[in-house]
């Protein structure tokens, strides 16, 4: 009989891990709390830097899961340590004995309303990056006006923000803002688009080219300065205050739409999951790996592995590569090599 491995979380990390385990000859059991696979990526429209369709990425991952046991709409009741492995009790009543568990529990988007000064949930035309993707996917959103003349993006909402309790850079928001700014400019060529940033952290393949495109070909304005407060005008537009730090002058602008780049924060549900099997958290709230350099997919506990953003913000290609790496670590472990 093939060895069972429980993979918790059916986002791209869990899917790729399960697919890799499958091709290594194991019997992965993929457990997903929601009613669909794909996690955050499934609610995205197109992905940087090649504007790949998110649905296609999910579809190709799904195709590779043929033969894996997938439980949707299923949570974890508890995980108990046994002498030689773990007993994982699922909320659907299924009890699994497994020598290895992979946590692919992902992240949460920062709750934008907590940055009260930006007025998310209060002003009529303030949305988040994820609301915008939903709109790109064809979802209705009355907050997006029919013909906006000016649109703003606020980078680092809840990221690199000690006061919000998150010191980490969310890594993907700078490039996401640029991607979304370009997409909006394509839809509304007459609109002026402003990105308010602290630093632009564009580290990935082709990201800088994307930025140059946004500047040169789309005329998107980049203003170095964090938005300090947002107000609503009598006509319902929002007015944004920031400092143009390169000019050393305060700047204000009225906008028809303001997009908040909500950052990546740790998944708070990890706490319940790790009740019986204590797993340490890092200062940033994410799961602590055995080693941040050479053992990112290894937990400090024998038989428990990590894949994807449960250990910190990551891009899709990084997550996929890490998922494969986690599968190989599980393989080595089950073969008695680690």
């Amino acid at each position: 009989m093939k060895e069972s491995v429980v993979v918790i979380g059916g986002g791209v990390a869990g899917m790729e891990t399960a697919a890799s385990l499958l091709s290594l000859g194991y019997a992965p059991i993929l457990v997903e709390q929601s009613d669909h696979l794909g996690g955050h990526v499934a609610s995205w429209h197109r992905l940087f830097p090649d504007m790949t369709s998110a649905d296609e990425v999910i579809a190709s991952l799904k195709a590779r899961l043929e033969g894996a046991s997938v439980f949707l709409g299923t949570g974890i009741q508890f995980v108990n340590r046994l002498k030689d492995g773990y007993n994982v009790m699922l909320t659907n009543g299924v009890s699994v004995l497994a020598k290895a568990i992979v946590l692919a529990t992902g992240f949460r988007l920062f709750e934008a309303r907590r940055k009260e000064e930006y007025g998310y949930g209060i002003y009529d035309h303030v949305i988040t990056n994820s609301d915008l993707e939903n709109w790109f996917r064809g979802g209705d959103d009355l907050r997006v006006p029919a013909e906006p003349a000016a649109i703003g993006f606020v980078h680092c909402v809840g990221s690199r923000d000690v006061k919000a309790g998150n010191t980490q850079c969310s890594k993907v928001c700078c490039i996401t803002a640029i991607k979304q700014a370009i997409e909006l400019k394509e839809k509304f060529p007459g609109a002026e688009i402003y990105c308010f940033y602290m630093d632009l952290r564009l580290f990935g393949k082709k990201y800088e080219d994307f930025y140059i495109n946004a500047q040169r070909d789309y005329g998107i304005h980049f203003i170095r300065g964090r938005v300090s407060e947002v107000g609503e005008r009598i006509d319902g537009r929002v007015i944004v205050k920031a400092e143009d730090t390169l000019a050393g002058k305060p700047v204000k602008v009225s906008l028809d739409l303001l997009v908040l780049m909500s950052g990546i924060v740790c998944n708070p549900e990890i706490a319940a999951l790790t009740k019986n099997v204590t797993l340490e958290r890092d200062e940033d709230g994410f799961l602590r790996s055995r080693d941040n350099l050479s053992g990112i997919t290894l937990s400090p506990r024998k038989g428990i592995f990590y894949a994807g953003t449960c250990t910190g913000p990551k891009t899709v290609p990084e997550t996929l590569a890490e998922a494969r790496s986690a599968a190989l670590c599980v393989h080595d472990f089950l073969q008695g090599r680690a």
Binding site: A150, K249, P250, K252, V253
Partner: peptide, 8 residues
């Protein structure tokens, strides 16, 4: 006089 730049 205000030193703020009004982009509007």
């Amino acid at each position: 006089p205000s030193s703020a730049v009004n982009l509007d």
